[in-house]
Amino acid sequence: MRLTDPRTAVVAKRLAGIQRVIAFSSAKGGVGKTMCTVVSALVLARGGRRVGILDLDMQGASAHLFLGTRPRLPEEKHGILPLPVADGVSLMSVAPFTGERGLLLRGAEVSDAILELLAVTMWGPAELLLIDMPPGMGEEILDLSRLVPRLEALVVSTPAVVSVSVVERLLSVLRELHVSVPAVIANMVQGDTGRVRDLARRAGVARVVEVPHDPSIEAAIGSADALASSAAGIALEKAMASLGYL
């Protein structure tokens, strides 16, 4: 008889009411994963979808900062409840537990924390779960691809040479893990996106979503309305509709 970690037995049950789980991923840091995750959640909610955000960046959780939410311990109801952060949007991350303190974890502890959050968070009415992935390739993508049924990934890259090169490695890994990639998001676009389009073609990804470089984003941080109405918000709203999320 095979005994497994009991938490793995309930992850699918916790996500049963959620139609699609989308990991905003990029092996490269600083390409705008969190912005894309949060703004996508806001435009989806504005379009009537109920959205959960799971920020899995243990060292650099920042979705709450974009949303202007002060982290606080979650309420309990046969599990823990994600924080309501905007109309139709709820958030879970390590920030409610650790605040703005640094959290130094080794790989196995990262896996434990991910599994715990997946096992005890009650997403309630959320229809879509957007996961803000940390940079790099490690426990997060391995654990999610194993534990989350029908996981899909929107892969974020800037058009920069280094970003495209690093992201190509992620796309290769996602293919091996059988994680579906409906689109590559070319973020911070100021000109030609040929490199990202070539990358998508090589990786067999059907769509490229272009999100313009938007200097107003910095000033919009902390305001759900301003983020959703930004140029990035308009681009991501169109993308969410074309990808069938809206």
């Binding site: 970690d5 009991p6 938490r7 793995t8 037995a9 309930v10 049950k13 046969h78 096992a119 009650m122």
Partner: peptide, 19 residues
Amino acid sequence: MHEWALADAVVEATAAAMG
């Protein structure tokens, strides 16, 4: 009481192991 979520996990895992 998030003890319920953990208890749920234990019961589900037990049932899964029993098959």
